Amino acid sequence: MVRIILVRHGQTEWNVTGRYQGQEDTPLSAYGREQGEKLARSLKDIPFDVCLSSPLQRAFITAKLCADLHNLSVEKDERLTEIHHGDWGGRLTEEIESLYADEFKAWHKAPHTVKMPGAGGESLEDVRKRVRPAFDDYAARFAGKTVLVAAHDAVNKVIVCDLLGMGIDKFWQIKQDNTCINVLEEQDGKWRLVLLNSTLHMGYLFSTTDQKGL
């Protein structure tokens, strides 16, 4: 069996303002780093053997804060990079809604049908096609181990949907707060969800905040 502790990165200023990040390499805010430190302390006594992260700094620094308390290095995996937002990247939610009204509406009603407009833009299926093989690799490489994986909102939602056999049309039915903890286990080719979107290390059971941008 392999156990995956899947976390989302700490907060960035773009998360707060509702600016779409995607593959823009935005840093953690001061509060985001504080969130990462709280996450690390909450996992200090939870043994894990390997630490993997998206190469984007907001995820990598979140992972490193956790890994440092276990004297582990962090391995970057490009497949964990957040969805590429194409022309939406760097734009505020309100601006996207105004300029791309039909696509924006579809993104919130039927996200599996949308490919982000512009150069490099991805669909959720594009994300699934690169992230699922990564998790299959982890199951093969790290049998018998516990692995910390630090990634992103869309990545986490897509992989949870896929591993549980849910269509990615269920994307918006899963919430991923900053530095949330998810636990997934694989045995004999079957995945199960043990924990989803836990934020108890932040001092609350659930957040009432829904971020506008990813």
Rank of each mutant, 00 (worst) to 15 (best):
G36D: 03
R8Q: 05
D45H: 09
I61Y: 11
Y31A: 11
I61T: 10
Q23M: 13
T26I: 15
V7I: 14
L65S: 03
Q23R: 13
G22K: 03
P27E: 08
F60W: 13
A30K: 10
R33I: 13
R33P: 02
T17K: 14
S54W: 13
L43K: 01
F48G: 00
L39K: 05
A67M: 03
I46P: 00
D68N: 05
G18V: 08
L56G: 04
L56F: 07
I61H: 09
D25A: 10
C66P: 00
R58P: 01
P27S: 10
R58S: 06
Q57T: 10
G32R: 06
S29H: 05
D45S: 14
A59W: 11
G18A: 06
R33F: 14
E24I: 15
R41D: 04
R33L: 15
P47R: 06
L65P: 00
P27R: 09
N71Q: 04
V50G: 04
V16G: 07
L65R: 04
C51R: 02
Q23L: 12
A40D: 00
V50L: 12
K44D: 00
H9D: 03
I61E: 10
T62N: 11
A67V: 01
F60E: 05
R41T: 04
G36P: 02
V50N: 04
C51Y: 03
A40H: 03
H70C: 00
L65F: 07
Q11D: 00
G22W: 07
L43H: 04
D25P: 07
V7P: 06
P27I: 06
H70I: 00
R41E: 08
